[in-house]
Amino acid sequence: MKKTSTPFALIAVLCLVNPVRAEKDKSPKPIESSISSGLEVLTQPVNALAGEKFTIVTKPRLGFREGSKMYQLEQPIATFIESFGPAEKITSQTIETGFLAHTKTHYYINDGILITENKDGVLVGIIFRMSATKAMLSAKVKTAEGITSGASLREITKIYGVPFKKIEHSLLGYLSTKIHYKYADDVISFEFRDGKLENIGLAAQYLPYLQQ
């Protein structure tokens, strides 16, 4: 009878899936079962494997938690950076009016977070990117109520109720939908792009502009 050899690529897959030495494995799994199990692990979403890293909270005011550390709106940016760490990129706005006038944005590219400070060095904005782009990874984040990447407009309104304000407009060929909720003088916003959740934003000192 002619012997057949196992292709090298298949051997490599089996070693990754079932890394037990051949001489010690008295009852090897069927090849089909081993490959299937390995592919299931390899094709899981990154967030499902790693879990959420940040949790958005509403009490005592809007902010987020990383482990035991809490970060809130309107804290000094220097205090935030001292605890959370420096950003990979910082940009400055030179516009004279509006919420973003004379602000700086700190891009935490690998965390998927944008932090905005005003001209007085106070943290006034936090944006969590829910979808990765070429320039920034997505944030591994959920709200305390369980809203995370992939949440629908229906699910959000079911939990948070009727929004304080809803804004829709077409931009560069896609439909942008933003729903805003008030928490005292702070605002939490959920932004959709063509029906897909793109950003979750937290803002202080933004309510006057939203009411215009």
Results as ranks from 00 to 15, higher is better:
residue 162 V to G: 09
residue 148 T to I: 04
residue 61 R to W: 12
residue 188 I to L: 06
residue 201 G to A: 14
residue 77 I to T: 08
residue 101 A to F: 09
residue 87 A to E: 07
residue 20 V to L: 12
residue 64 F to R: 03
residue 93 Q to N: 09
residue 134 K to Y: 06
residue 139 A to K: 05
residue 203 A to C: 03
residue 33 S to H: 09
residue 144 A to N: 09
residue 172 L to T: 14
residue 91 T to K: 07
residue 66 E to S: 11
residue 113 I to G: 01
residue 209 Y to P: 07
residue 189 S to W: 04
residue 37 S to Q: 10
residue 15 C to K: 15
residue 25 D to Y: 02
residue 181 Y to C: 05
residue 45 P to L: 15
residue 14 L to M: 11
residue 104 K to F: 04
residue 22 A to Y: 11
residue 89 K to S: 10
residue 51 G to E: 04
residue 67 G to W: 14
residue 127 I to M: 12
residue 117 E to K: 02
residue 5 S to Q: 13
residue 36 S to H: 06
residue 66 E to F: 10
residue 23 E to H: 06
residue 118 N to L: 03
residue 27 S to N: 12
residue 198 E to N: 09
residue 4 T to V: 08
residue 105 T to G: 06
residue 121 G to C: 04
residue 17 V to I: 13
residue 204 A to W: 03
residue 84 F to W: 11
residue 40 E to Y: 04
residue 91 T to N: 08
residue 179 I to L: 01
residue 80 F to L: 13
residue 200 I to M: 12
residue 71 Y to C: 02
residue 92 S to C: 08
residue 111 D to S: 07
residue 138 S to L: 11
residue 19 P to F: 15
residue 59 K to T: 13
residue 130 M to Q: 02
residue 39 L to H: 00
residue 42 L to N: 02
residue 141 V to I: 14
residue 69 K to D: 15
residue 5 S to A: 14
residue 77 I to E: 02
residue 161 G to E: 10
residue 96 E to K: 04
residue 153 L to W: 08
residue 187 V to H: 01
residue 47 N to P: 05
residue 181 Y to G: 05
residue 113 I to R: 01
residue 27 S to M: 12
residue 14 L to G: 07
residue 70 M to T: 13
residue 122 V to S: 10
residue 51 G to L: 08
residue 21 R to N: 10
residue 38 G to T: 02
residue 46 V to H: 05
residue 67 G to Y: 09
residue 94 T to D: 08
residue 167 I to T: 14
residue 161 G to Y: 03
residue 140 K to P: 06
residue 17 V to C: 14
residue 192 F to I: 02
residue 96 E to D: 10
residue 40 E to I: 12
residue 187 V to G: 01
residue 44 Q to F: 11
residue 41 V to L: 06
residue 52 E to K: 00
residue 111 D to E: 15
residue 137 L to Q: 11
residue 45 P to W: 09
residue 65 R to H: 09
residue 191 E to L: 11
residue 205 Q to A: 13
residue 133 T to P: 00
residue 3 K to A: 14
residue 39 L to G: 03
residue 37 S to V: 00
residue 98 G to A: 11
residue 197 L to V: 03
residue 210 L to D: 04
residue 181 Y to A: 11
residue 70 M to F: 12
residue 7 P to R: 06
residue 45 P to R: 12
residue 21 R to P: 00
residue 145 E to D: 13
residue 165 K to L: 08
residue 127 I to D: 06
residue 42 L to F: 10
residue 127 I to S: 07
residue 115 I to L: 14
residue 176 S to K: 07
residue 138 S to C: 12
residue 54 F to H: 05
residue 86 P to N: 10
residue 75 Q to R: 14
residue 53 K to T: 08
residue 8 F to T: 02
residue 142 K to T: 08
residue 65 R to V: 15
residue 126 I to V: 15
residue 106 H to W: 14
residue 160 Y to S: 01
residue 96 E to Y: 01
residue 203 A to R: 09
residue 101 A to Q: 04
residue 200 I to N: 00
residue 55 T to Q: 09
residue 35 I to L: 08
residue 63 G to H: 02
residue 7 P to T: 05
residue 53 K to E: 10
residue 46 V to P: 05
residue 186 D to F: 07
residue 137 L to E: 13
